[in-house]
Amino acid sequence: MLLSSIFLTTSANGVQPARHIGSMEPIISTENLKKIYRIGKVDVAALRGVDLSVQEGEFLAVVGPSGCGKSTLLHILGGLTPPTSGKVLVDGNDFSYMKDAERTKFRRHKIGFVFQRYNLLPTLTARDNIAIAQHIQGDGFNPHRFEAVTEMLGIKDKLGHKPYALSGGEQQRVAIARAVVCEPKLLLADEPTGNLDSENSQVVLTMMRTLNRDFRQTILMITHDAEAASVADRIVRMRDGRIIWD
């Protein structure tokens, strides 16, 4: 935690954004990043040359209309899908040249995902949903990290519940806990407040802000919600597969 390096301001929704100052190598760097999907016999360009740089500890919001390529960008940065061309460096690793298995391994250790629909495993309790991330990582269960994360996210009394017994806000907090329990370098959030009411949205955004501020967690969040985006240090706007404003 480098609290001394955090510069706090107050946003419109009361959540305090922070800006980290650093001159090191960016954790994310893309150059002329393109992604073309083939649908039937038609090529559809989802990304048409994205240049983006994100510093470690930064909280970046990517906004834009539906179909502008936000989710595709997030999927590529998370190693879920390879780019068609261009360069994409995440923590110094170039996904353009990595095989699926290598990207999977990288994702296991360096990336955490938070989704709009929470994406918890329905058969597992909240505790097991969080612990499975540690299990997949292969370093075994780390009770100290688990305790710290669940304490911070305020879900300690919900750990025995299965997803269907949790509210949307609680499910999303469990999802955040799962995403950060392995201490990823990068947290990728895909519309994390998209399914939540304003009160729960506020709670989730506060959690993410806290993670970023107190644990210096790098976060890239895509959202439609301008209020949610305002929590971030930096906002990037996309349109038609390109960044049009940074």
């Binding site: 994702r107 296991r108 995902f113």
Partner: peptide, 15 residues
């Protein structure tokens, strides 16, 4: 979908 979730968590083919 659950398999997708496991993959997003970094579960490989072997897992």
């Amino acid at each position: 979908r659950e398999i997708g979730i496991l993959k997003s968590l970094g579960a490989g083919k072997g897992y």
